[in-house]
Design a protein around this nucleic acid. Sequence first.
DNA 1: ACCTGAACACCGTTCAAGT
DNA 2: ACCTGAACACCGTTCAAGT
Lengths: 267, 267
Amino acid sequence: MSGRPPDADSSGPVDPTDVDADQALVRGEDPPSRREPLSRERIVDSAVDYIDAHGLPSLTMRRLGQELGVEAMALYRYVPGREDLLDAVAGSVINEMEHDDEVVDQPHDGWQDFLQRLAHGVRRVALRHPKVFPLVASRPPEAPWLRPPLRSLDWVETFLAGLHAAGFSDRAAVSAYRSFTGFLLGHLLLEVANLGADLGPLDVIEDAEEPSPRELSAGYTHVARLRGMLSEDHAAEEFEEALEELLDRIALMLQLDARADEGPASP
Amino acid sequence: MSGRPPDADSSGPVDPTDVDADQALVRGEDPPSRREPLSRERIVDSAVDYIDAHGLPSLTMRRLGQELGVEAMALYRYVPGREDLLDAVAGSVINEMEHDDEVVDQPHDGWQDFLQRLAHGVRRVALRHPKVFPLVASRPPEAPWLRPPLRSLDWVETFLAGLHAAGFSDRAAVSAYRSFTGFLLGHLLLEVANLGADLGPLDVIEDAEEPSPRELSAGYTHVARLRGMLSEDHAAEEFEEALEELLDRIALMLQLDARADEGPASP
DNA sequence: ACCTGAACACCGTTCAAGT
DNA sequence: ACCTGAACACCGTTCAAGT
């Protein structure tokens, strides 16, 4: 079965004297007067849903229009084009963290807790939208001082303000921002890739491509032997461990930074 | 200027009695008999060059055919389709490391040196092909036990065999493989993204999208203040530092692993 | 004000036909 | 054996026209 949505017209005869509106009613669509009007937000949300369900390559302006009960051309009143829509999609999912109660705006229990919550918030977004996350990860951000996956002004501000309030120097906060984003990007992209994220619906995969055991044992002795171990999914524990280590490293950097601030004349 | 290649026919009158071959000669093309035959390798190499030059979105089967002096349909004798071609492209650039003399097959100076060389080899690939690297990073690998960016059986085997030879236990080698890939993916993807990697030719960017300073100062006080510092490019040093830290972590893990092997009955 | 029809310049891919 | 022409079912996007 392909990703194409089923054609609702194909089941049963339709009186050809019906006017368009009546045919629409037969098909179960709301008449134009009753359906809520299009808006940029509704379009972006619908695009997120569509990618979650069918994968990025399946999202076309025409199919998205169909999803919204509208012709593709109508979308262009609210969105400049497909590329901008994808940017908006990436921004939208990362901003879902705004409604995540575990994620806080201000450190109230130390910066480590603050960053822990933030990291887990991003991870929840990635796992909720595994097919959208590669977009968050690899679309070029709108400014060189935004780095994926924290690719919105709001969250970078929250990050920096939080660390500032926790006593970080500017230098230390920026340094932490860099290592934090690198950490999130690597771990979460691997995690969603392992989920088979990139491609569309799973119907194409057919997992028939795996190298045969015969092929493997010829030369790839280590891979063959460790196959099982390599396939084990330890994403969650790995994430926790690596996050702890990252926080330790930041704490260390913080000490060095503070010492440098006291003045370079110390023993 | 768009990415579309210029039409060579458009400059000057052409005698309509010329046969196709002569017109081809006028255009400076080799006659079919003289040009070297198509091959999967030539197609993949050409695709890499094309993406390097014009970006992934600009690569179409038709334009790639044109680049090779052939109609698009001819490509399908050597490549099953566009998606498979992109997989081959990702595999091809990562395998460029085969010809990188700094990268070694066997650890001859300790595993740390071995991993240092491997990491820098992958980084050189990423910097040589910044527009291809997102493909290496986010295409789902052909088996669940291959993780980007080390997405080829050959390199995973080299990695595992190398650490094995250096005395790593299976468990330790697999654990190192996981953290190594996570590290590379995060850092290199950020680095190429910062280079403006994803999109096509630079002619579309026009850097007109940056939020205005006025907009910034309203609410985004920390981002505004740290703008300059955030834009600084420390990719190279960051990579070295983070790599050192990763190797330290692996060394630590190695000790714990060895101790666990001696038997859990130790004091 | 909001949406659609028709059109344009593209796509990927198949397959019978040419050399 | 290797490539092409013609065709099919799609794309994104524009714009005049409809309600």
